[in-house]
């Protein structure tokens, strides 16, 4: 499959690239990787990284060097609904471990795995800045806070038919000033 942004995404990409001074277009790399991840099923394949590199006129390996540094970039396929649960101190103090166990049991997967139907992936993450509303998880770009088992069940049940991987594209859209 040829990796290429559709017209709309390409327009956004060019708008982002135009923000930076002449010769400093590499600054657009991280925003473009977010855009690409949202456009191409929630992860960055080698082909996707090479394509983003071609837009910025840099080598694929330079893209990989950056993509592999940041935890939000998935270098392997993920489910339509990526569940990221915080496990650092404040969330741990208020029951994050139990929430993680509950999700693992409910979905029959462990941290880092994807359900067989490709619907859910579970990823434990470090502090997302939601400590006052702990425990919490992020799905797409949305924070779900003050979690209880019941709340988690309701949220996951409502996710069953949705593809949350596009949410980022929605959020990253660059405004015309």
């Amino acid at each position: 499959m040829e990796v290429k942004f559709n017209e709309e995404a390409l327009a956004v990409a060019h708008k982002i690239i135009a923000r930076y001074p002449e010769g400093k277009q590499k600054s657009a790399l991280i925003p473009l990787l977010h855009l690409a991840q949202a456009e191409f099923n929630g992860w960055l394949s080698p082909e996707t990284m090479a394509y983003v590199g071609s837009l910025l006129k840099i080598q694929a390996v330079e893209v990989y060097e950056v993509a592999s540094f940041y935890s939000m970039f998935n270098l392997k396929p993920v489910g339509k609904c990526l569940i990221e649960v915080c496990r650092t101190s404040s969330c741990w103090l208020r029951g994050a471990n139990e929430i993680i166990e509950h999700i693992e049991k409910k979905l029959g997967i462990k941290d880092g795995e994807t359900t067989q139907d490709g619907m859910f992936s579970l990823k434990t993450v470090e502090c997302l800045g939601s400590c006052g509303t702990a425990p919490m998880m992020m799905i797409g770009a949305q924070f779900h806070e003050n979690l209880t088992y019941e709340k988690v069940d309701t949220i996951l049940d409502s996710c069953k038919s949705e593809d949350k991987r596009k949410t980022y594209f929605d959020e990253v859209t660059v405004k015309d000033y």
Binding site: I30, P31, L33, H34
Partner: peptide, 12 residues
């Protein structure tokens, strides 16, 4: 003055 929002990608 131009003001832009730049997004990171998960790195403390």
């Amino acid at each position: 003055l131009d003001l832009y929002v730049q997004v990171g990608a998960g790195a403390y």
